[in-house]
Simulated assay, not measured.
Amino acid sequence: MGLLYLLGLAVALTGMVLLDRRFRLFFWADARRAAIVLVVGVLFFLAWDLAGIGLGIFFRGETSFMTGIVVARELPLEELFFLTLLCYLTMNLFSAANRMLGRTAAQGRRTPGGRP
């Protein structure tokens, strides 16, 4: 039973990948940019977690659904998968919302004269 949470996160990540592939939202739209954004997002939240752990704010909860593997003090393996899922989900939602609103990256850029 110690793998249930990790398995759930892996299934959810697989769903994000399938949605991304089907609708070309994030990685399938621009793999290089997506990889940079995903890594920066995960590193930001990982630094946030480590700061919280260092300050004594965050603690690893004990449950039978987790593997018990820790990557660092009070940082379970599942947290890395969760942060990846969080960032991937956010970027898929952002890309889908932009698409539904009819926006593109080029429309958001302006020249100094205020014209696209």
Rank of each mutant, 00 (worst) to 15 (best):
M16Y: 06
M16F: 10
M16L: 09
V17S: 11
V17P: 01
V17R: 05
L18E: 06
L19Y: 04
L19E: 03
D20E: 08
D20V: 00
R21C: 14
R21P: 05
F23I: 03
R24D: 07
L25Q: 00
L25C: 06
W28T: 07
W28H: 13
A29Q: 09
D30F: 04
R32S: 04
R32G: 07
R33Q: 12
A34V: 06
A35V: 06
I36Q: 14
I36L: 14
I36V: 15
V37F: 02
V37D: 00
L38T: 01
V39A: 15
V40W: 02
V40N: 02
G41E: 04
G41A: 09
V42E: 00
V42P: 00
L43N: 00
F45W: 10
F45N: 07
F45L: 13
A47D: 13
W48G: 08
W48I: 09
A51W: 08
I53S: 04
I53W: 04
I53D: 05
I53F: 09
G54F: 03
L55M: 15
L55E: 11
L55T: 12
G56P: 12
G56Q: 13
G56Y: 14
F58P: 03
F58Y: 09
F58S: 04
F58R: 06
F59H: 15
F59Y: 15
F59I: 10
G61H: 11
E62T: 09
E62L: 13
E62K: 09
T63A: 12
T63S: 15
S64I: 07
F65I: 04
F65V: 08
F65A: 13
F65P: 01
M66G: 02
M66F: 09
T67R: 07
T67A: 14
G68E: 13
G68W: 07
G68N: 10
I69P: 01
I69M: 12
V70P: 01
V70W: 02
V70G: 02
V70C: 11
V71P: 01
V71S: 07
V71T: 09
R73K: 14
R73V: 10
E74L: 10
L75I: 08
L75Q: 02
